[in-house]
Amino acid sequence: MRSNENTLLLGKKVVLVPYTAEHVPRYHEWMKSEELQRLTASEPLTLEQEYSMQRSWREDAAKCTFIVLDAEKWQAQLSTTEESCMAGDVNLFLTDLGDPSLGEIEIMIAGVTKLGLTKFEAKIGQGNEPSIRMFRKLHFEQVAVSSVFQEVTFRLTVNEHERQWLLEQTSHVEEKCYRDGSSESH
């Protein structure tokens, strides 16, 4: 996550900030949900394990993890914390060392400019119909099925025309410097 540890992306409805120790308690509460565990193919973790996971992801150069904040709440956050504005997360995994233009993504976000990605893959549990519908709607195409892992792989290859369209659609997004990540307590 070193590539996005000081990056804040400000959009009209959401703000993306790096996943820090401050976000772990709320994230941990979310992940107690059996439904979320099923949809994300996740195992329940203790709070300490969740802090450890956050630290390891922060140190991993092959992962970019953002927390999605409600922009309206965040901009009016005089008396609220980022944790109270949390709405979800976005993950980008640079999984193929042989192809640095490929990133596995869990939600569509404009990672095109900073990281130079042109291909996005999503690995989705076969029973996760809401995510399958969303990625199909985003023009991802099914490229593989794994009966062993019970998942479907979707891919979107971004050509120059689509890249320009993405840049136009996200032209309102401002990239700002996030607070210095060295002050984390966990």
Rank of each mutant, 00 (worst) to 15 (best):
E43D: 07
E43A: 12
S101D: 11
G111L: 12
G88S: 07
M53D: 01
M31D: 01
D89F: 09
W30R: 00
S146E: 05
Q75V: 06
S147I: 05
F135E: 02
R136M: 06
V112Q: 11
L97W: 13
C64P: 03
R38C: 02
Q49S: 10
S84N: 02
P100H: 08
E129I: 14
L102R: 15
E34G: 00
T81G: 12
L156R: 09
E72D: 12
T118I: 14
L92R: 14
F135K: 08
A61L: 14
R155I: 01
F140Q: 06
G125M: 15
D60C: 08
G127T: 05
I67H: 00
V68E: 06
E35M: 03
W74Q: 09
S56K: 13
A62D: 10
P100S: 14
K114R: 15
K137M: 15
D99Y: 07
R155S: 06
F93D: 14
E83W: 01
I124P: 02
M108G: 11
S33C: 00
G127N: 08
Q77A: 15
F93G: 09
E106Y: 12
G88D: 02
D99K: 05
L94F: 13
A122V: 11
Q142L: 12
A87E: 05
V158H: 04
T113M: 13
K73E: 10
I67L: 04
G127F: 02
T118G: 12
F93V: 15
A110L: 13
L78F: 07
W30G: 01
E35R: 01
E43T: 07
E59Y: 01
T40R: 00
S79Q: 10
T95V: 12
S84Q: 06
E83A: 08
E34Y: 00
D60Y: 03
Q75Y: 08
E43M: 08
E72V: 09
F93R: 09
A71W: 04
P100T: 13
K32E: 02
G125R: 13
E121P: 04
D99L: 05
T157V: 01
T65V: 15
I109F: 15
A76T: 07
W30K: 00
F154W: 06
I67V: 15
T65F: 05
V143R: 09
M86S: 01
S79R: 10
K63F: 08
H139E: 04
W57L: 15
K123H: 12
L78D: 07
E104D: 13
F120I: 07
C85L: 06
A71L: 05
M31N: 03
E106R: 11
W57S: 07
M134K: 07
W74C: 07
A61D: 14
P44F: 01
S33H: 02
R38S: 00
I105L: 15
F140L: 12
L78R: 08
S56P: 02
P130H: 05
P100K: 11
I132R: 10
E121N: 11
S79G: 10
Q54A: 10
A122H: 06
L36I: 03
G127P: 00
D99M: 03
E104L: 15
R155K: 07
K32C: 03
T157H: 04
F154N: 03
T95F: 13
K119E: 10
D89N: 10
T46L: 09
E59V: 05
T153G: 02
L36G: 00
E104M: 14
A122L: 13
E121D: 12
I107Y: 13
E72Q: 10
Q49H: 11
I132E: 04
G88C: 06
R133W: 01
